[in-house]
């Protein structure tokens, strides 16, 4: 059991440690003859090793914000700087390179490649980095060990449970030792037991490897694990809270 205590309601301000900076970020999507504004004037920053979550109802702009941080999308206004690079100024190749080396993604629907085995799914990101077969094997097996799936390395995703698939997705996102992992509703398709299992796995990786985790969620189970909660509503930040997790006996 964990108990959440709000310790600070200020934005994390350790400037030296910041790896993501969002300044007055606005995102609009064309709809018909007009525009739909998904994000309005978002100013946030995330430090190295954070375990933070964007929380809010559907349509609040959580996934849009994650996509911009992950360089899958660009802001309409404002500036998003990730690992010292302005997202809007990255070429397609540079953005792909950043995602490949420094950003891991975990999706609600796992998004594993169905024709690949567990091992090959995890290995995929490393294949793009021209790493030797021996090093790849070592890294993949370690990633599978982190998520407790070394015995499933030859299985295809169709042979795994939802929880196992999500653990493979975590291994895939972690195998390249990224600086940031973006998890979009990672527990939405999982039962309670599996949700806690994967959240504990991610928490452990965050603590041991110092990787920054940013979640998009409206799942209470996820919120219990977050060290920082950023609440969004209608594309605006309505609260940004630092929380301390205290084990209760």
């Amino acid at each position: 059991m964990v108990k959440r205590i709000i310790v600070d309601d200020k934005i994390f301000q350790d400037m030296d440690n910041q790896i993501i900076q969002l300044e007055h970020l606005t995102k609009r999507f064309p709809v018909g003859n007009g525009f739909f504004t998904a994000l309005t004037d978002i100013t946030l920053s995330f430090g190295k090793g954070e375990f933070a979550g964007l929380v809010g109802p559907s349509g609040s702009g959580k996934t849009t914000l994650l996509n911009i941080i992950g360089s899958l999308d660009v802001p309409s206004e404002g500036k998003a700087t990730v690992l010292g690079r302005s997202i809007a100024e990255l070429s397609q190749k540079q953005a792909a390179n950043m995602r490949n080396h420094h950003i891991g993604f975990i999706f609600q629907t796992y998004n594993l490649l169905p024709v690949y085995t567990v091992y090959e799914n995890v290995e995929f990101a490393l294949l793009l980095q021209n790493i030797s077969a021996e090093e790849r094997r070592k890294a993949v097996m370690q990633a599978l060990e982190w998520v407790g799936l070394t015995d499933k390395e030859k299985s295809k995703p169709s042979m795994l449970s939802g929880g196992e698939c999500q653990r493979v997705a975590i291994a895939r996102s972690m195998v390249k030792r990224p600086k940031i992992v973006l998890a979009d509703e990672p527990t939405a398709n999982l039962d309670s037991k599996n949700s806690h299992h994967i959240l504990q796995t991610m928490q452990k990786l965050n603590e041991e490897l110092g990787v920054t985790f940013i979640f998009s969620t409206h799942d209470e189970k996820v919120m219990q694990y977050l060290k920082r909660q950023i609440s969004l509503a209608d594309g605006k930040v309505v609260a940004d809270e630092q929380v301390e997790l205290v084990s209760s006996q």
Binding site: G70, Q92, K93, A96, R99, N100, F107, L113, A125, L128
Partner: peptide, 16 residues
């Protein structure tokens, strides 16, 4: 399409 999106998220460019 999801697979295509995943490829891009994993670090492939669209032309790749």
């Amino acid at each position: 399409q999801k697979e295509i999106g995943t490829f891009i998220a994993l670090g492939l460019t669209r032309w790749q």
